[in-house]
């Protein structure tokens, strides 16, 4: 766990360092709070390294908590969501959601095509009806503007 915690502590330390120096641009009143907690963040990042060194077994977990494969899968989900957001304006909420759900079912191993399609359509339509019709929250309709 030392290597992972070391990397995480490094990221938090850099974040604190960035927040601290960036705060110099702010007015004195506005800078006090972020500067103070940026220093605390850096101190805690160092404390994490020291704590892990002193008690390496504290968390009782193995070194590679997230595998490369898991990171890849996470990236696929994030990328699918970004593409979905781009498609929203064109295809509208309902159609984009059906496609997103179906693709995610397929990628993540739910291969019963008929069920996947039914669940994708049913979920998207139910969510659309709840927000658009029952709660009066307008959702993007894209090409289907004024269709419902």
């Amino acid at each position: 766990m030392f290597r992972i915690n070391g990397i995480l502590a490094g990221i938090f330390f850099l974040l604190g360092l960035f927040a601290f120096f960036y705060s110099f641009q702010f007015s004195e009143v506005a800078a006090f709070w972020p500067k103070f907690f940026a220093v605390v963040l850096m101190a805690l990042a160092i404390a994490l390294i020291v704590d892990t060194k002193l008690k390496p077994d504290r968390e009782q977990v193995s070194e590679n908590t997230i595998s490369t494969r898991e990171y890849k899968l996470l990236a696929i989900i994030a990328a699918s969501t970004v593409i979905y957001m781009i498609a929203l304006d064109l295809l509208g909420f309902t159609v984009s959601s059906i496609v997103l759900l179906f693709i995610l079912f397929w990628i993540f191993g739910y291969r019963q095509l008929k069920n996947a399609l039914i669940i994708s359509i049913a979920s998207s339509v139910v969510v659309t009806v709840i927000f658009q019709v029952l709660l009066n929250v307008p959702l993007p309709q894209g090409l289907f503007e004024n269709f419902y």
């Binding site: 989900i77 969510v127 959702l139």
Partner: peptide, 19 residues
């Protein structure tokens, strides 16, 4: 199954944040 729930929760998260 969790695989059915995961994408649906993601969709609800998306629409909820947007709304």
């Amino acid at each position: 199954k969790p695989i059915v729930l995961g994408p649906i929760i993601l969709l609800l998260s998306i629409v909820g944040s947007y709304a």
